[in-house]
């Protein structure tokens, strides 16, 4: 097992090299660079740059080198000093910019992930155990609605109704008071209320898939001979559902977790913009639009690493979950 993990981790390196190269290449592909979008943004505010000033800016930002030299410098910085570069837009180290939003992103993402699985798994099991009952139909229906509706639309609808009912628009996770005075106990109810909107919007989008998968898998497993055997042995229904069926049914769910690691890091972008959440997704979008390439490159690179790690972890989890996979690996 250890050698297997070791080999996989070793494979990361060439994969990451190729990915980082591709990322960098694609980001700088559109004509122009950060200076172009910077000059344009300044012009929109009324500040005009002459051609020589623009050339100066390019030198200042180090953007006058050809791109593969920029790429090489960037990689050198990462490997030798752990320096991921400089964000032109924010005027700070890329790592600082990412760390700024990291905790909130992780917190929001974890909560949403827990909500998703915490809601979907029990519903999936219930639906399987009570197949074709009224509860099965009703719950599946809500799951479908959550997935069929585009997230941002759901967010807008929810915010609209809240505005009509209360006259307040709960935009963003923090109210002005919270930002001014820091978190206090009296703010917790409002904070939870504000969290509920992104939770429902983003959380419900994934639940349907998980519910239907779990339900189908559970129905499959329940029809198997070994459940009959276990029942004949005197096992309780609870044991049969949770110890035997669920473990087998989790196979596709665990595979699905591979992608979650990356999602946890960057959060959902469109929903974040609509609900004005200060998480990583909008940062990446803005960085890409303004060609703030070290920031964009680093975020995408981190996402790539997380996908690789996530896949590895989910493979390990699968092997732990299902001994047949272990056996196949060994042989």
């Amino acid at each position: 097992m250890l050698s297997y993990i070791g080999k996989r981790i070793l494979m990361f390196i060439p994969t990451l090299i190729i990915i980082s190269f591709l990322i960098f290449f694609i980001i700088q592909l559109p004509p122009g660079d950060y200076v172009t979008s910077y000059v344009a943004a300044m012009a929109a505010e009324g500040e005009i740059f002459t051609a020589e000033q623009i050339a100066d800016l390019r030198v200042q930002f180090g953007l006058d080198d050809p791109w593969f030299i920029q790429y090489f410098n960037w990689v050198k910085g990462i490997v030798t000093e752990g320096d991921f570069g400089y964000s032109f837009e924010y005027g700070r180290d890329v790592w600082d910019v990412i760390m700024d939003r990291l905790y909130l992103t992780l917190a929001v993402s974890f909560i949403i992930l827990i909500f998703q699985y915490g809601v979907s798994l029990p519903i999936g099991i219930y639906c399987a155990n009570h197949q074709y009952s009224a509860g099965d139909y009703v719950l599946s229906f809500f799951g479908f609605i959550g997935t069929a509706t585009p997230n941002f639309l759901l967010a807008i609808i929810i915010m609209y109704y809240i505005y009509v009912k209360t006259g307040n628009v709960y935009l963003g996770l923090f109210s002005t008071e919270m930002l001014q005075n820091g978190m206090r106990w009296e703010y917790v109810p409002e904070f939870l209320g504000r969290c509920a909107i992104p939770l429902i919007v983003i959380g419900t989008s994934g639940t349907c898939g998980i519910i239907r998968t779990v339900r189908a898998q559970m129905l499959d497993e329940q029809a198997r001979q070994y459940t009959l055997c276990a029942r004949a042995k005197g096992c309780s229904e609870w044991t049969i559902t949770y110890k035997y069926c669920l473990r087998a049914a989790l196979n596709p769910v665990v595979s699905g977790l591979a992608g979650s690691l990356r999602t946890i890091f960057s959060g959902s972008t469109v929903s974040a913009i609509v609900m004005n959440l200060a998480i990583q997704g909008p940062v990446l979008l803005a960085a890409l639009k303004s060609q703030d390439m070290y920031l964009a490159g680093t975020i995408v690179l981190i996402q790539a690493v997380l996908v690789l790690v996530g896949t590895l972890l989910s493979d390990i989890a699968l092997a732990w979950l299902d001994p047949r996979i272990r056996f196949a690996e060994r042989s």
């Binding site: 001979q225 055997c229 004949a232 005197g234 473990r247 087998a248 979950l321 001994p323």
Partner: peptide, 22 residues
């Protein structure tokens, strides 16, 4: 459940699928 497995037991046709692979 107290009777199943203790007083009356049952064995089935296909042993390959009678056990949980997990």
């Amino acid at each position: 459940r107290a009777i199943r497995g203790k007083q009356i037991s049952m064995i089935f046709q296909e042993p390959m699928v009678a056990f949980s692979p997990m």
